[in-house]
Computed example of a mutant assay.
Amino acid sequence: MSYIPSALRRFVTQRAAGQCEYCRFPQTASFFAFEMEHIIAEKHGGLSIAENLALACTYCNRFKGTDLGSLDPDTKKLTPFYNPRLQQWSNHFRLDGAIITPLTPEGRVTVKILQFNLSERIIEREQLISSGE
């Protein structure tokens, strides 16, 4: 993995408003520091530039890894993940209580592979919602 300068890290963090750009979990509620995630992994030719970096929580970054997409559970077609640099979150996902519901094929593969709705993640979201975050 290449070095990401501190100024670029600050820019990515500020642009994300301190939230995971995939699941929207706030960094202030996380025990672990969020990570610079390559939307297109370096092994696939992705560069360490602002247009290819996203702020990601530990869960999302680990589950995504270097993958670019997966098979849509509905259509069984190879589908790319949601791309926070090119797409609007609200076009692909909806928050139903503490559940993140996918709205598109990209949303479905992202929810499935990044495991947005694991029981422990839902519990964390419920706690945040009940505390007003």
Rank of each mutant, 00 (worst) to 15 (best):
C20V: 15
E21C: 14
E21G: 07
E21Y: 07
E21I: 14
E21F: 08
R24F: 03
R24E: 05
R24K: 05
F25I: 15
Q27T: 08
T28H: 12
T28S: 09
A29D: 07
S30K: 02
S30C: 07
F31A: 13
F31P: 01
F31H: 05
F32Y: 13
F32T: 07
F34S: 05
F34C: 00
F34E: 04
E35W: 01
M36S: 06
E37G: 08
E37S: 11
H38F: 01
H38S: 04
H38V: 05
H38A: 02
H38Y: 03
I39H: 03
I39G: 02
I40N: 00
I40H: 02
I40A: 02
I40M: 02
A41D: 12
E42F: 03
E42S: 03
K43D: 02
K43Y: 01
H44N: 13
G45A: 11
G45P: 06
G46T: 02
G46C: 04
S48I: 06
S48N: 13
I49K: 00
I49H: 03
I49C: 05
I49W: 01
A50G: 09
A50Q: 10
E51Y: 06
N52M: 11
L53V: 03
L53Q: 01
L53M: 01
A54P: 01
A54T: 08
A54V: 12
L55W: 04
L55M: 04
L55I: 13
A56E: 01
A56T: 09
C57T: 11
T58P: 01
T58K: 06
Y59C: 12
Y59W: 05
C60I: 05
C60Q: 08
C60W: 03
R62W: 04
F63D: 06
F63S: 10
F63K: 14
F63T: 08
K64P: 00
K64S: 02
K64T: 02
T66V: 07
D67M: 06
D67K: 15
D67A: 08
D67R: 15
D67Y: 03
L68C: 06
G69P: 08
G69D: 10
S70W: 01
S70K: 11
L71T: 15
D72I: 08
D72W: 04
P73D: 13
P73K: 14
D74H: 11
T75N: 01
K77Y: 11
K77C: 12
K77I: 13
K77D: 11
K77H: 14
L78P: 10
L78N: 14
T79W: 00
T79A: 04
P80K: 09
P80A: 11
Y82F: 15
N83L: 09
N83T: 10
N83F: 07
N83K: 07
P84D: 07
R85P: 04
R85A: 12
L86C: 05
Q87Y: 10
Q87D: 14
Q87T: 11
Q87W: 12
Q87H: 14
Q88T: 09
Q88D: 13
Q88K: 13
Q88C: 14
W89Y: 07
W89I: 14
W89K: 08
N91I: 00
N91W: 05
N91E: 14
H92R: 12
F93Y: 07
F93M: 15
F93L: 15
R94W: 10
